[in-house]
Amino acid sequence: MNLTLFRHECRQLVKTTLIWSLTVGLLGFLCIVVFSSLQGDMESMSEQFAKMGAFADAVGMNKLSIGTIEGYYGIEIGTIFGLGGAMFAASIGIHMLSKEEGGHTGEFLYATPVSRRGAVATKFGAVLTALVAFTVICVALFGIGFLILGDGVNAKKFLLFHGTQFIMDVEIAALCFAISACTVTNMFGFGIGLVLLLYFADMIARVVPSLEFLKTISPYGYSNAADMFSETEMCVAGLVLGVALIVAALVFAVIRYERKDLAS
């Protein structure tokens, strides 16, 4: 880990991290504080959604009631945070390594005594730091929202949800980081596409029984808010696969980046 490079990368990520975490955090915060005024409507909506069959299954409304704060948090804020956090993770991971070549700064950076392996470790360290900051800011804003609302969700379920969401964000960041080791251009669109693909894979797995295995592949399978707040058994196989993919993606990134001919 190179501290100079780490500080530099963190500084470069400050603005993006603040924009994403304040956007997602404030959106969730506003949803929480307006819950009491929407509660009546939510209860009637919940009854209508429950009749929607597959759609209700896909978004977890078969397990939670949107008319309760826990159900509302799991369905509304869970979706906002799950998609927002994963998109943020993908957006910072996908060009963390490739930006040096894309911005023609590779020769400037690697003409210093930092090894490529050291740079990979340092840059992923900066990504992890940004994800921690994102999670802390969002969770803090949601917490303030609950204080203002005067109501809340079960703390254990809340922490479990955000803990698994953090692992999911790390997994998506690591996968995008590995892709970044192979490319020269910013593949932002690809990163966002990957997030949406994994999100819809989880939704399909919840609707089509023959495709339930997708729940193991998609990180949304083990970090699903509806599962956490309804105390449905967590997809442990998916979590184990997720952690294994993080390790594999980082090992791949190191090997690929060390063997790569740097574009000038």
Binding site: Q12, T105, A111, S264
Partner: peptide, 11 residues
Amino acid sequence: YMPSEAWFYSG
């Protein structure tokens, strides 16, 4: 080392 193209972090 001075590369042929002088690029740095623009900000």
